[in-house]
C-alpha cells in the first residue's frame, strides 16, 4: 500500500452486529447462571490472582459477551482456580465451573 503519511484508525466501538456469540451461547447453555451477574465486583475484589494480575471474573464474562474473546482468555490464563470468587459471589454463580467451561469450550474452538 502506498504510504500517504497517515493511516485510518480502527473504530474503538464494539460493533455488536459483527460479534459471533456461538461459543458464548454454548457456555450459557452449560451454565445458565452466567447471565445473573449483577456486576457487584466481589469476585474481582477477592480474587487471589487479581492482586497481581488483571483477572476479573466479572470482566471475563462481559468481554465474552462483547466478542472480546482473546482478551478474556488472556485473563482466564491468570486464574489459579482457587474458587474464592465462587465462595463470595452475591448471585451464587458457580464461577469456577464457568472458568473451567470457558477453558474447555474456547480452546476447542481454537483447534
Amino acid at each position: 500500500m502506498i504510504d500517504f503519511g497517515f493511516s485510518i484508525s480502527k473504530s474503538s466501538h464494539i460493533q455488536m452486529d459483527d460479534v459471533d456469540l456461538k461459543t458464548f451461547k454454548k457456555l450459557e447453555a452449560l451454565n445458565p447462571d452466567i447471565n445473573t451477574c449483577m456486576s457487584c465486583g466481589l469476585c474481582t475484589a477477592t480474587c487471589s490472582a487479581g492482586n497481581f494480575t488483571d483477572v476479573s471474573f466479572r470482566k471475563i464474562i462481559l468481554m465474552l459477551q462483547r466478542g472480546k474473546d482473546k482478551e478474556a482468555l488472556q485473563k482466564v490464563k491468570r486464574c489459579m482456580m482457587c474458587g474464592k470468587c465462587m465462595m463470595i459471589c452475591s448471585r451464587g454463580i458457580n464461577t469456577r465451573n464457568i472458568l473451567l467451561s470457558i477453558t474447555r469450550l474456547y480452546n476447542e474452538e481454537e483447534k
Binding site: 474503538s12 466501538h13 464494539i14 460493533q15 455488536m16 452486529d17 456486576s39 466479572r58 470482566k59 462481559l62 468481554m63 462483547r66 472480546k68
Partner: peptide, 15 residues
Amino acid sequence: IKAEDTLLGTPMKMT
C-alpha cells in the same frame, strides 16, 4: 444505536 458499555469502558454500536 450507540451507547457506552460503562462496565467495560468501551463504546458500542448495535442494530
